[in-house]
Nucleic acid binder design. Structure first.
Length: 635
DNA sequence: GCAGTCCAAG
């Protein structure tokens, strides 16, 4: 325009700056806007035109430069109410509520006639920051200036009171409104969503429809997380096109409620309909990938995040680390961790991720690295570290962490206390464990389960069973882990009949037995020499037995020298875990002991043809603060 | 031509 010598007038400038601010919001650098500022100075525009100054205040706010926005305002030769309002929202968009409050007060003192915009912009911030006192002040000002009947302000106030938890004030405003629009209804619905009384949410939604108000994308987004079971119903009856937020809400709704593949389908459909997935979409979908261990979908979403340059978002990179770790892909998870920005969640996610892996000692390394990196520990970090210590039998280090927790008054934290129980029971230190256990005021199901498992493992079955009965008296209901604990106590104690009783009790309680429960039953019967009954259990399982179950049977066969069943179990194990050398060795030794040399030789050949390596054995050595693994030779 | 209300995440 300038180059083609068409003179730009006063109106061109705000337009152009608006575009420059939008570019900044889209991730571009602010050069265009700075050039425009310079041009405006050269032309003396800022001396003559309030509009130019106002737009610059907003532009600097959009760049995240609140101080520059304020300087712009201070240097303006003349200001109007929009200048003040622009400064207020400039401060608010940069999270400076207190400064914004001071400006509003200054505005009153300078006798600037406030309008709706002056008040309406601070109201949402008061709500989210729980600034009740100032929020009530604003409401008071609205009443005094007669602005309280303005629709926008009323809507904002309803939402604010909802965020304060003052449902009565919110409803009084809502019911007294001279007119309502969709936002009024959304704000009112939002108040009930906060309270968690979903019958009321639904009732408001019905009332909204009854008043002939069309629910838009914002209504959808706030209803979907609240009304999970009605989600699809509402979604299918939507009358307006969804926006990114409502797509995301629906995807989250499906992903978090067991409809993972539906969520993936919607992700595709969203893009077909021109929706552009963002960081929220990714973060909602990734846990669904790990829940159904869909590595393929996870990788697709990873690739998508790279293309849309979303990898710099901490939520996205952390969610990816978590998804890969949960799918057992620790090296992929590590890769992202090493290349990304890191916060406490990144460290915690990977620490927990390594726990169930063969590289569990990495959890301890990371815990140490976290400290060197100056990232603060939280309860999750300590929990991960304690579990790692328990898994690695690193009891000395575990005790040190216990000391840290005591000094930080965290040793009675509900799930940290449980991690301590796990550590001490695994280390055979039942006295310490039971002292901690007795000090937990709110014992949850995990606390009881850990103690029962501990006593069961260490041969004190009577105590384990006693605890199992006591937990019910304490008002804590059994879960599926409780039954694993009690069944394994029975099997270690040789209490076959009692074990059978608990198993049927579990079925009666409508807890569906999982692989581990069957493994316990197979162990219970197998140890007692009732191998054919063990086999019968496996044959009658409602799903295919995994390696835990077959491995247990193989172990019992070894004890009782039943080669026939051992072969049967081993055949399944060779298929399920072909790389696991222990199973081959066990069967081979059984054949050898029975003098069945040709069969033993066959297994040896099978091992060679599959290139199965014997696992080297490691020993853990404390080296300063670090735990090191040393190879001690062939197992 | 500038300012201003409601919705979603580890």
């Amino acid at each position: 325009m300038v180059r083609s010598s068409v003179p730009p007038d006063d109106r061109t400038f705000p337009f152009a700056l608006h575009a420059a601010a939008a570019a900044v919001a889209a991730g571009k650098r602010p050069v265009k806007g700075l050039e425009l500022h310079a041009a405006a100075l050269r032309r003396g525009l800022l001396l003559a035109d309030v509009f130019a100054g106002n737009t610059l205040v907003t532009f600097y706010a959009a760049c995240g430069r609140a101080a520059d926005a304020r300087r712009m305002f201070d240097e303006m030769p003349a200001r109007d109410v929009v200048s003040w309002n622009s400064l207020v929202s400039a401060l608010l968009t940069n999270g400076m509520l207190e400064d914004a409050q001071r400006v509003v007060v200054g505005m009153m003192r300078s006798q600037v006639p406030v309008n709706v915009a002056s008040l309406v912009s601070v109201v949402p911030a008061c709500g989210t920051q729980r600034e009740e006192e100032f929020g009530l002040c604003i409401h008071g000002l609205a009443l005094k200036s007669g602005l309280d009947s303005v629709l926008n302000l009323g809507n904002a106030l309803i939402d604010m009171y909802g965020k304060f938890g003052d449902l009565e004030a919110a409803m009084r405003l809502f019911n007294g409104m001279p007119e309502r629009n969709e936002v009024s209804w959304n704000s009112a619905i939002g108040c009930f969503v906060h309270t968690g009384i979903y019958e009321d949410v639904l009732e408001m939604f019905r009332a909204m429809l009854g008043h002939g108000v069309t629910p838009g994308s914002v209504t959808l987004s706030s209803l979907l997380p609240a009304l999970v079971d009605l989600g699809v119903f509402i979604w299918e009856r939507r009358s307006t096109a969804p926006n990114v937020v409502s797509w995301n809400a629906m995807i989250a709704n499906l992903a978090q409620n067991g409809a993972e593949s539906e969520a993936f389908r919607l992700f595709i459909e969203m893009q077909k309909n021109g929706g552009c997935p963002n960081a929220f979409t990714i973060v909602n979908l990734l846990p669904a990938c790990s829940r159904v261990t869909s590595l393929k979908m996870g990788k697709q979403i990873h690739a998508w995040s790279i293309r849309r340059s979303l990898m710099s978002d901490l939520f996205v990179s952390n969610a990816l680390i978590d998804a890969y770790a949960k799918c057992g892909q620790l090296s992929l998870a590590r890769n992202i961790f090493d290349r990304s920005e890191k916060d406490d969640v990144s460290y915690n996610t990977l620490i927990v991720g390594y726990l169930q892996s063969p590289c569990c000692f990495e959890s301890l390394h990371l815990f140490e690295q976290m400290r060197s990196a100056g990232v603060e520990y939280d309860a999750v970090s300590f929990m991960g570290c304690l579990s790692a210590c328990a898994n690695l039998s690193a009891f000395k280090q575990g005790k040190e962490i216990h000391g840290v927790l005591v000094r930080r008054f965290l040793s009675t934290h509900p799930f940290l206390a449980n991690s301590l129980l796990d550590l001490y029971t695994k280390g055979g230190m039942l006295d310490t464990a039971s002292k901690i256990f007795n000090r937990i005021t709110q014992k949850d199901v995990a606390s009881w389960n850990t103690m029962i498992l501990g006593y069961g493992m260490l041969g004190q079955h009577d105590v384990a069973l006693e605890l199992f009965d006591l937990m019910k008296d304490d008002g804590v209901d059994y879960d599926h882990v409780s039954y694993i604990a009690v069944l394994s106590a029975c099997s270690h104690g040789g209490l076959v009949e009692r074990g059978k009783k608990y198993f049927s009790q579990m079925l009666a309680q409508n807890i569906k037995p999982q692989q581990m429960h069957y493994a316990c039953m197979v162990d219970l019967l197998g140890r007692a020499g009732q191998l054919s009954e063990s086999a019968e259990i496996i044959r009658n399982m409602p799903f295919r037995a995994n390696s835990d179950v077959w491995g247990t049977l193989l172990g019992s066969c070894r004890i009782h020298g039943n080669i026939e069943l051992a072969r049967w179990a081993a055949e399944h194990l060779f298929e399920l875990k072909p790389e696991h050398s222990g199973y081959y060795t066990l069967l081979m030794n059984m054949y050898a002991e029975a003098g069945m040399w040709s069969e033993a030789h066959e297994i040896r050949t099978l091992m060679k043809s599959r290139k199965v390596q014997k696992n080297p054995a490691y020993s853990w050595v404390q080296n300063g603060n670090k735990l090191q693994a040393f190879l001690v030779g062939d197992a």
